[in-house]
Amino acid sequence: MAPLNYRHLYYFWVVAKEGGMARAAERLDVAVQTVSAQVRELEQSLGHALFKPAGRGITLTEAGQAAMVHADQIFQLGEQLVASVREAATGQGQRLAVGISDGLPKLVVRHLLQPALQDPRVRLLCHEDEFDRLLGDLALHRLDAVLSDRAAPANPNLRLYSHHLGEAPLAWFAPAAMAAKGARTFPACLADLPVLLPTGHAAVRPRLEQWFERHGLRPRIAGEFEDSALLAAFGRSGMGAFPASQWTREELLKDKGVRLLGETPDIVEHFYLISAERRVHHPLVQKLLPAGRAPG
Rank of each mutant, 00 (worst) to 15 (best):
M1N: 03
P3K: 11
N5M: 08
Y6H: 13
R7W: 03
F12A: 03
E18F: 02
R23N: 06
A24M: 08
E26C: 08
L28P: 02
V32Y: 00
Q33N: 14
A37D: 08
A37G: 01
Q38T: 01
V39N: 01
V39Q: 00
E41V: 00
L42P: 00
E43Y: 02
E43R: 01
E43W: 01
Q44H: 09
S45C: 06
G47P: 07
F51Y: 12
K52T: 14
A54P: 00
A54R: 14
G55V: 09
G55K: 10
R56H: 09
G57Y: 04
T61F: 02
E62G: 06
A63Y: 08
A63P: 07
G64M: 08
Q65V: 10
M68H: 10
V69E: 10
H70F: 10
Q73I: 14
Q76G: 13
R86G: 12
E87H: 11
T90Q: 13
Q92F: 00
G93R: 01
Q94F: 00
Q94N: 04
R95V: 10
R95W: 02
A97R: 11
G103S: 15
L104D: 00
L107Y: 03
V109S: 03
D119G: 10
D119H: 08
R121G: 05
R123N: 08
H127S: 12
E128S: 15
D129W: 07
R133E: 13
D137M: 14
A139M: 05
H141N: 13
V146R: 04
S148R: 05
D149Y: 00
P156G: 11
N157K: 09
R159A: 14
R159W: 01
L160P: 06
L160G: 04
H163F: 07
H163L: 11
H164K: 11
A168D: 13
A168Q: 12
P169C: 07
L170D: 02
L170C: 08
A174F: 00
A180W: 05
K181T: 13
A183S: 14
A183W: 04
A183E: 15
C189L: 14
L196S: 09
T199L: 05
H201K: 15
V204Q: 03
V204K: 02
W211P: 13
F212T: 05
F212A: 12
E213R: 15
G216A: 08
G216E: 11
G216S: 12
R218H: 14
I221C: 12
E224K: 09
L230C: 04
A232C: 05
F234W: 09
G235W: 00
G235H: 04
S237A: 15
G240F: 04
A241C: 13
A241S: 14
P243D: 08
A244L: 13
Q246L: 12
R249N: 05
E250M: 06
E250W: 00
K254N: 12
K254W: 00
L260N: 02
L261K: 02
E263W: 06
T264G: 06
T264M: 08
D266G: 09
V268Y: 03
V268L: 10
E269P: 01
E269Q: 15
H270L: 09
H270Q: 15
F271D: 02
F271A: 04
A276R: 14
R278H: 12
Q286H: 04
P295D: 09
